[in-house]
Design a protein around this nucleic acid. Structure first.
Lengths: 400, 400
DNA sequence: ATAATATGTTGCACAAACATACAATTCAAT
DNA sequence: ATTGAATTGTATGTTTGTGCAACATATTAT
């Protein structure tokens, strides 16, 4: 992060780089032959073989047993397909939320191997308590032998982080200026890299990890619950901004129905939404009620939903002018309202912006288990596949 | 741009990479010794020497004659300072504007060696005419022997570009779907890389090039004239967005004094600003008139300026929520209004945003000559110092 | 003057990729 | 069925570029 500009190559770091490129390629494309890899990485076939040999020796890569005969439709000797060894390594993600705490463990192939969610009174807990609770949950979920293979622990919290992963301010948890990663690291029985990040950022990375396509372009990610968080993913990597708080779409100023400007999350957030519907329709509706009423075409529900759509559209248009995403991904429980209102949102966006601009594709993700925890694990997975830790740590740093 | 993810290293490409790292370091820090470079690039002193030897052989780097005795305040043999050979190479930037056309030539040290601005009826000219006019201007300004050393030509226009440098739409020039770079390339008598880009983007890169500090963080750049363009620079590189139209701050929706929201550039743009002042104060004021009236404390002028400041602040706050810049740079003639209104803008921003967010530093640049043309030249300079062209082109591409 | 410290250069070793050749394996055509 | 073309994986030797250690050099401090 600090030497973003000038990176020099050393004689054996070149191999490190190529091994990582192979791991990345295998991760994104599932299974490739040595010759495929040689073409893709622009190296000689023999070099590809050497690199694979080293990775196989480390147990990270293996040959696919019987790849099926479907591949051999071309003349020439068919190549042997290679794949990552899923359980060679593991990565753990922790989400510390306001009401719950979640842990997800993924393997080298980014498959979820274990996960659990547990109630936790985050709003009234000290940071140290939260950290030790989180570590206990990890130890409960991840057996010791898999923990030994763990190559990274990520912690996601609803908080503003500085660039170095310290918590600057977490109003929902009542924390400020704490090195959460350090606390967790100290409690863990194994010595692994621990990083903390914003939950929306983690969620964003997790959402891009599902698809197997090699990440490219700019994706704006929104998590809509009580608040509205956001993250920007650029060519598969997080765009954090100068102070680590980029993508705060929920704090965009958007005109409300009364003409006043408010933060977007104070218009389209869960509580506000239900509160408004309650005022029109009475009762004590929950989100599923609103959704079914919208589906049933009830006027009050449609009115609330239309206002929601208009505010969301305004915020999205603003964000599009700044970062020009080619994809917007909506997550969180409130995102379920998008499906019936998609037409309204798109129409409102088109009406609000200059016709010369393109509208990005907008999709909704279904969030399973703990999205931020999964994302936090993915961030460590991504980190492992990008020139850190691993064998590079064997070189002793003796720089002042 | 396409292989953003997997890059592999070859055995002699490592040298290429290190040579570029040396050139970058010398560019950013002006003059360094071989030992300085070795430390900074984390290579051995002997390797540093070899790399310098090769670069000196190519005439790109030379030893500084007499560095003055100020350096030798430390024990030990003093190092020999090295510097880029400024006139070893050149880069040309062209701006094709609505009313004028500009050319700037810079050298390897990014110093301006030649520049000229010429009137040009861009709004009523065909693309081909514009391209050949631009090339003629280049040939007039850059003597043949320097053109032979040219390593890149950049073209900046007020237009939406796609990711590959094609003009998608240029309403001010009446163009659409043209490969401008290709047209210019075909007319040039020498074979050099030619790239086209948005003028605000070019301006942004040019503005970051002035300071000698190594670029880091996120900078939002605004050019305020009749319209308001913008660019985002992230660790010294442009953030273009998914479709190449990121940073369009001028199209942000901002509440006007009448409560309606409009595109920012339709509130703070030059013509609108003067028009409003005219309505209040009468006459036919120009920008300097408004500026001096503001300085003199005339109420009408102050009122217009305050409205301007409020709208600008709103737009900036919105942009900050999305990309979280640590620096905002204002350019263009209208930026002169910022200095007297800085307090108002900052206060308005602070009032509009959550107190948890930091306010970025806001500065104003003085624009000399043709900013976009200079920036376009800088973009080619930057490209040369970043793993393209140069000796890498000697490898024949035989990939399908 | 001598010691200490830092720089630049030189000779040698090593790592890793490249180039080429060759065996292996499949499809297509005679 | 046999041959030929195409493609993969591996083994040879070569080239390149860096790291390491030693040394001469140049300057400051004692």
């Amino acid at each position: 992060m600090n030497d973003a500009l000038q990176t020099a190559s050393s004689p054996r770091r070149i191999r490190q780089r190529n091994e990582i490129a192979v791991l990345q390629a295998l991760h994104h494309f599932g299974s490739l032959t040595r010759a495929d890899l040689a073409r893709r990485l622009r190296v000689n076939r023999s070099s590809s073989g050497h690199i694979i040999e080293a990775l196989a020796g480390d147990g990270l890569v293996r040959e696919v047993e019987s790849a099926g005969r479907g591949t051999a439709n071309r003349a020439g000797r068919p190549g042997v397909h290679l794949e990552l060894v899923p359980d060679a390594l593991g990565f753990v993600g922790i989400e510390i939320g306001v009401e719950h705490m979640g842990v997800v463990e993924i393997d080298l192939a980014a498959n979820v191997v274990a996960s659990e969610i547990r109630p936790f009174a985050g709003a009234s807990s000290d940071v140290r308590v939260a950290a030790s609770e989180a570590v206990r949950l990890v130890l409960d979920v991840v057996p010791p032998e898999r923990l030994r293979r763990c190559e990274g622990v990520g912690v996601a919290t609803p908080s503003q982080m500085d660039g170095q992963g310290r918590v600057r301010l977490a109003p929902l948890l009542g924390w400020r200026e704490v090195d959460l990663a350090d606390l967790v690291r100290a409690q863990l029985p194994v010595r692994v890299p621990v990083l903390a990040d914003n939950d929306a950022n983690a969620f964003a990375i997790g959402a891009t990890y599902h698809g197997q396509e090699p990440p490219s372009g700019v994706t704006l990610f929104l998590v809509m619950e009580s608040g509205v968080g956001g993250g920007i993913v650029f060519d598969g990597k997080l765009f954090r901004g100068g102070n680590g708080v980029a993508g705060e779409v929920g704090h965009l100023l958007v005109p409300d129905t009364d003409g006043e400007y408010r933060a977007l999350e104070r218009i389209v957030g869960l509580e506000v939404l239900l509160d408004r519907y309650c005022r029109l329709a009475g009762g004590n509706p929950l989100l599923p009620d609103l959704l079914s009423d919208v589906a049933a075409g009830k006027l009050a529900a449609l009115g609330v939903a239309r206002d929601w759509a208009r505010a969301l559209a305004f915020g999205l248009v603003q964000a599009c002018r700044i970062i020009d995403p080619d994809r917007i991904v909506l997550g969180g429980s409130v995102a379920a309202l998008y499906a019936p209102m998609a037409g309204h949102v798109v129409d409102a966006m088109a009406a609000l912006q200059d016709s010369a601009f393109l509208l990005p594709e907008i999709v909704v993700t279904e969030l399973e288990g703990s999205g931020p925890a999964f994302g936090a694990a993915c961030m460590m997975h991504q980190r492992y596949l990008s020139l850190e830790s691993q064998r590079l740590s064997e070189a002793a740093d003796d720089d002042g």
